[in-house]
């Protein structure tokens, strides 16, 4: 028998799966797994929410502040006035289970947040943007609406649960995760939640001033302004499109027969 040198067969050590097929399978498969886990976690948040009442929540988070929140001085005039405005607005929500506390975050980005235990956070950016008390009252009323519907706990719960999940996934230190402002950006409300909060905000503003003039003025300005795209995008990351929103509010006020003109209360700053 004569030995004939032959080439070895190709492909013994190399899978014949096309790299793009491999990539596709992994991306689709992993996405599906993550989505399922995320949905289960979100469902668990709903279950917890069902068993913890607003009163329990208020007790649990009494005096609580996010760890890394940078606030302004307690003697800041704007803080005192915003707190007073909230206290006045709450009178139109008779059996509110919370004692609302206002804090001003020193962020330049215009935003307002509802946090567990009746904590209302407004940013310096927002206070710089609002042109009248009526505008500010609506934003605060909107946040009260989130408290009423308990969107804030739902959203925060999701944010925290999901950030723990992603930390575990990427191998970060899970124990080091508290409720930080950074997590708050993970919060997102659905359009339906936002619309309900808007309705409640309008109702509160109407009860307080007897009209809803200027309530959506802020959103009209944001919706129409082109040079503020950056701010707008940032705001949109937690809230829906400003232009649509103003239109929806206008329609809602007309349906309810609320006056859309009336005296504007100026801000002291």
């Amino acid at each position: 028998m004569r030995f004939v040198a032959r080439q070895p067969k190709e492909g013994i050590n190399v899978s014949d799966t096309h790299p793009l097929v491999e990539a596709g399978t992994l991306v689709v498969g992993l996405t599906a797994i993550f989505v399922i886990i995320a949905v289960v976690l979100i469902f668990m948040v709903e279950v917890v929410l069902y068993f913890v009442s607003a009163e329990d929540e208020a007790k649990l988070f009494d005096g609580w502040l996010p760890e890394d929140l940078v606030t302004v001085s307690y003697t800041d005039e704007r803080l005192l006035e915003t707190q007073a405005l909230v206290d006045r607005l709450v009178l139109h929500w008779p059996d509110a289970p919370y004692e609302f506390r206002v804090e001003i975050d020193d962020s330049e980005q215009a935003n307002a947040m509802a946090l567990p235990g009746g904590l209302v956070i407004v940013t310096q950016g927002l206070l710089d943007e609002v042109e009248s008390e009526n505008e500010l009252a609506f934003v605060l009323g909107h946040e009260l609406g989130h408290f009423k519907n308990r969107d804030h706990v739902r959203a925060l719960g999701r944010g925290v649960v999901l950030s723990i999940f992603f930390a575990a996934l990427t191998g970060n230190d899970v124990a080091g995760i508290g409720i930080k402002s950074a997590d708050l950006t993970l919060r997102s409300f659905s359009r339906r939640q936002e619309a309900r909060a808007d309705d409640f905000g309008l109702q509160v503003v109407n009860s307080e001033y007897g009209h809803v003039n200027e309530a959506w003025h802020l959103f009209e300005r944001w919706g129409g302004k082109d040079d503020s795209i950056i701010d707008l995008v940032k705001y949109l990351s937690t809230h829906p499109d400003s232009g649509d929103r103003a239109a929806t509010m206008k329609r809602h006020a007309e349906e309810k027969g609320w006056q859309s003109d009336g005296e504007i209360t100026p801000l002291s700053w």
Partner: peptide, 27 residues
């Protein structure tokens, strides 16, 4: 590309198929 795909594979384990031709070539 290979690095990213291998990273994804690393989450669940299994053959890192995109590395196989690479090491085959090297050998």
């Amino acid at each position: 590309f290979k690095r990213v795909i291998a990273g994804l594979r690393g989450l669940i384990g299994g053959r890192i198929k995109t590395y196989e031709p690479l090491l085959d070539r090297a050998r």
